[in-house]
Simulated assay, not measured.
Amino acid sequence: MKVVIVEDELAACENLVYLLHSIDRTIEVITFLDSVTSAISFFSKPHDAQLVFMDIHLADGLSFEIFDKVAINAPVIFTTAYDQYTLKAFKVNSIDYLLKPIDEEELSEALNQFETQKTEKKESNSQMKGLLDLIKSQNKAYKTTYLVNQRDQLIPLKTEKIAFFYIDTGVVKAVTSDSQSYLMETKLEDIEHDLDPNNFYRVNRQFIIRRDAVTIIKYYFNGKLIVNTKPVHEERIIVSKAKATEFKKWMNS
Results as ranks from 00 to 15, higher is better:
Asn228Gln: 15
Glu234Ile: 12
Val17Thr: 09
Ser44His: 06
Asp60Val: 00
Lys173Asn: 12
Ala12Asp: 12
Lys140Gln: 06
Asn204Glu: 08
Gln180Pro: 08
Ile226Phe: 11
Ile226Asp: 10
Thr116Cys: 12
Lys140Cys: 01
Ser94Asn: 14
Lys230Met: 14
Arg236Cys: 07
Asp48Phe: 01
Glu189Cys: 05
Glu105Tyr: 12
Asp60Ser: 05
Gly130Tyr: 03
Asn139Pro: 02
Leu10Trp: 11
Val175Ala: 05
Ala89Tyr: 01
Lys136Cys: 07
Glu9Ala: 10
Glu104Pro: 03
Cys13Phe: 15
Glu9Val: 11
Ala163Asp: 08
Thr169Cys: 11
Glu235Tyr: 13
Tyr18Cys: 07
Ile5Gln: 00
Tyr220Lys: 10
Val148Arg: 10
Glu185Trp: 09
Ile226Thr: 14
Phe165Val: 05
Asn112Gly: 15
Lys243Glu: 13
Asn15Leu: 13
Arg211Tyr: 13
Ile216Gln: 12
Leu188Phe: 07
Lys45Ser: 08
Ala89Arg: 03
Pro156Arg: 07
Ile167Cys: 11
Glu123Asp: 08
Phe43Leu: 06
Leu62Thr: 01
Ala244Cys: 07
Glu120Val: 13
Pro231Ala: 09
Asn93Lys: 07
Glu235Ser: 14
Arg25Phe: 10
Leu147Arg: 09
Ser253Tyr: 09
Ile27Ser: 05
Lys121Thr: 13
Glu234Arg: 12
Leu147Ser: 09
Val29Ile: 13
Ala71Val: 11
Tyr219Ile: 10
Asn149Cys: 03
Ala12Asn: 13
Asp103Arg: 10
Thr215Arg: 14
Arg205Phe: 11
Thr37Trp: 00
Val6Tyr: 00
Thr176Gly: 10
Ile72Asn: 02
Asp34Gly: 05
Phe200Glu: 05
Thr80His: 03
Gln153His: 11
Ala81Gln: 05
Ile5Gly: 04
Ala141Arg: 10
Asp103Phe: 06
Ile217Gly: 03
Thr144Lys: 15
Val214Trp: 01
Val4Ile: 15
Val3Ser: 07
Ile30His: 07
Thr169Ser: 15
Lys243Gly: 04
Phe78Glu: 00
Asn198Gln: 12
Tyr97Ala: 02
Thr80Cys: 00
Lys158Arg: 13
Gln50Lys: 08
Leu111Lys: 03
Asp68Tyr: 00
Thr229Met: 10
Asp34His: 08
Tyr220Leu: 09
Ser108Val: 03
Asn228His: 15
Arg210Phe: 10
Ala81Lys: 01
Arg211Trp: 09
Thr79His: 02
Lys248Ile: 05
Gly223His: 09
Ser181Gln: 15
Leu131Tyr: 00
Ala71Ser: 10
Ile135Met: 12
Gln206Met: 13
Val232Ser: 14
Lys100Val: 04
Ala74Gly: 02
Phe90Pro: 03
Glu235Ala: 14
Lys45Val: 04
Ile226Asn: 13
Pro197Glu: 06
Ala242Ser: 12
Lys91Phe: 02
Lys243His: 12
Phe114Glu: 09
Leu157Ala: 09
Val232Gly: 11
Leu62Phe: 00
Val52Trp: 00
Asn125Arg: 11
Thr31Val: 08
Thr169Arg: 15
Thr37Arg: 07
Lys118Arg: 15
Ile102Leu: 04
Tyr18Pro: 02
Glu246Tyr: 07
Lys91Gln: 01
Phe43Ile: 04
Ala59Gly: 02
Leu87Ser: 00
Met128Val: 01
Val214Asn: 05
